[in-house]
Simulated scan of single mutants.
Amino acid sequence: MQTKKESLVESLANVTVGFLVTILSLHIIFPLLGIESHSGKNILITIYLTVLSVLRNYILRRYFNKKQHPDKK
């Protein structure tokens, strides 16, 4: 069973990679879709999505850990 700290570290590592992929992806996809944007907006969007991703990963990880090990806190 993962500790809460281990769950958070795993989520942060996962999301760090996602952050970099998203930054690069926005620079590719927005121009293809005709969406005008600049680096500042792209970074702000990515930060917002990153925070949501960290929370989602952490909550799901804790839920499944608790479900698999209901007797432990």
Results as ranks from 00 to 15, higher is better:
R56W: 14
I47S: 00
A13G: 07
V15G: 05
S39H: 12
R62A: 06
F64N: 02
H38N: 15
F30L: 06
L12W: 00
H69S: 07
L52M: 13
L44Q: 13
V17M: 12
V17P: 02
P70N: 05
V9Q: 10
N57D: 11
L8Q: 04
V17Q: 12
V15K: 00
I23M: 09
Q2D: 15
D71E: 15
I59V: 14
I23C: 05
I23A: 08
I23V: 09
I45L: 06
Y58S: 03
V15L: 05
T22H: 03
L8E: 01
P70W: 04
Y48S: 10
R62F: 09
F30R: 04
S53R: 00
L12A: 07
L12Q: 02
L49Q: 07
Q68T: 13
I23Q: 02
K67H: 09
L8D: 04
L8C: 01
I45Y: 01
Y58M: 00
R61K: 13
L26F: 05
T16V: 08
Q2K: 15
I29Q: 03
L20Y: 09
S7E: 13
S25Y: 11
K5M: 10
L60T: 15
F30E: 03
S7I: 13
R62G: 00
F30W: 01
I35E: 09
H38T: 09
K66D: 11
E6H: 06
H69W: 08
G34T: 05
I43N: 04
V54T: 00
K4M: 13
N57F: 08
L32C: 07
Y48K: 13
K67Y: 04
E10R: 12
H69L: 02
L33D: 05
L26K: 09
H27V: 10
K5P: 01
